[in-house]
Design a protein around this nucleic acid. Structure first.
Lengths: 241, 241
DNA sequence: TTTATATTATGACTGTTAGTTATACGATTT
DNA sequence: AAATCGTATAACTAACAGTCATAATATAAA
């Protein structure tokens, strides 16, 4: 009994060792630039051994992506638990996404890479990753519903659609960092400003314009609610504070 | 003289034949599922011959992506030439993107695939594709500037940032069709409604709230300006008209 | 017309990689 | 001590991007 247990534990530990080794490599190089040979060398096992633990390279990669999604889910859950109006939860979730992109840029890169085709939809991991992302969106949707109920979010919005639009926007803004950072900085913005300003841009689209809009500008802007100071439309004022 | 000309023409024709054959295959299968052998067979040439015309598979793929970008650029230019207020141009550009996604779903898929890493940034085609996309965004930025000048768009918005946010949102909304279509339809929406409703969602974020906001709702909603009728927040009204 | 030259095309090749298989090892059980 | 079972491995296959020496073909020169 104890022996079977130990063997089970050892097996799971081996699996974890493989994931850890693969993660180190996938964090530092792209999917195509990491071969199963490389991973085998990193974890000091034969390549064929890895295939005893993972069906294929895709599944191993997806397992790491799932780790990343899990962390994001936790961040969203924390936002939801805060005692603040619905619209503030929504903005907090956007900011949580931004913070995630700064804390775990490699997970985020892998998540986006996994989302971009080439990975089989039949793989059970794909469904699980989709479910993980879906959970985040559901949390966001609940926050939107709360905002509608407490009067801080436009009552005519559909919570489902709005949660989709916001998730897609968050994802888009933060998946572009590598690609468009230089363009953004060439225009005199830091990426942090770029992300922060997005919340100020989007708030009027969701705000009920009564309680919440005034609240954003007056109460939150000065108390660290937004990531940075607002950007004035004149170029001269764009320098990062 | 005439002979050199003819040979030049013939060479370019061969190149076009290769691109056309590759396009047919890349339209029907994914990047990884189309081999250079396949393309060679399709165009009835030896694989090595293709390498006389294209440096590598990436470059051939990118050449097709450029065709797609060119078409999008033309659509944006058309919107810009319309004699309408700035905010209407902006929404028209979003709709142009939607129409493009319906007319040329395969180009769009290839464009998004090209954008998702794995393709070398050193390849001159990558820069050219980036420039093509950049041109679209500049057109959008000009439309936003016009809207600010004619009072239909919030004067406190930065045209550069706003054009980025909108482009990213358009791209995001329309790159998700394959992935999230089922989720959206499970909620009782058609993808067309999903895209159309986005414009109604985003308009308050850019509208100056004076001339333009009322204009959207009163004048345009009933005259085909939006793609579909507005969606009421109740699930019962979600069926596609 | 014949020969030389340049361009275009090709079959056969290399190197790399994901994934498989037959075999060996080592711990546990009989 | 022998049989059993799970784990590990070396050697393999198949597929593919990209290369190269050689051949075929068209143009130019003799």
């Amino acid at each position: 009994m104890g022996i079977a247990d130990r063997r089970q534990r050892e097996k799971e530990q081996r699996k974890t060792e493989i994931i850890d080794a693969a993660e180190r490599l996938f964090f530092s190089r792209s999917y195509e630039d990491v071969s199963m040979e490389d991973i085998a060398r990193e974890v000091e096992l034969n390549k064929a051994t890895i295939y005893l633990y993972f069906k294929n390279k895709e599944t191993l990669f997806a397992t790491i992506v799932l780790r990343g999604i899990q962390i994001l889910k936790e961040k969203y859950t924390e936002c939801m638990e805060k005692q603040v109006p619905g619209i503030v939860k929504v903005v907090l979730m956007g900011q949580a996404y931004y913070q995630y992109s700064q804390e775990y840029p490699d997970y985020l890169r892998m998540i986006h890479f996994y989302g971009s085709e080439r990975f089989s939809k039949e793989n059970p991991c794909t469904a699980e990753i989709g479910k993980g992302y879906g959970t985040c969106r559901l949390i966001l949707r609940d926050a939107i519903q709360e905002g509608i109920d407490d009067g801080t979010i436009r009552a005519d919005l559909d919570p489902f659609l709005t949660s989709m639009y916001l998730m897609i926007s968050f994802m888009g803004i933060l998946s572009m960092e590598n690609k468009w950072k230089l363009v953004i900085e060439a225009e005199g913005f830091s990426y942090e400003q770029f992300a922060s300003e997005f919340f100020r841009f989007i708030t009027p689209a969701i705000s009920s314009g009564e309680k919440s809009h005034k609240m954003d500008v007056k109460d939150f802007a000065s108390s660290g609610f937004f990531l940075t100071e607002p950007v004035a439309p004149e170029k001269e004022k764009r320098k990062k504070s």
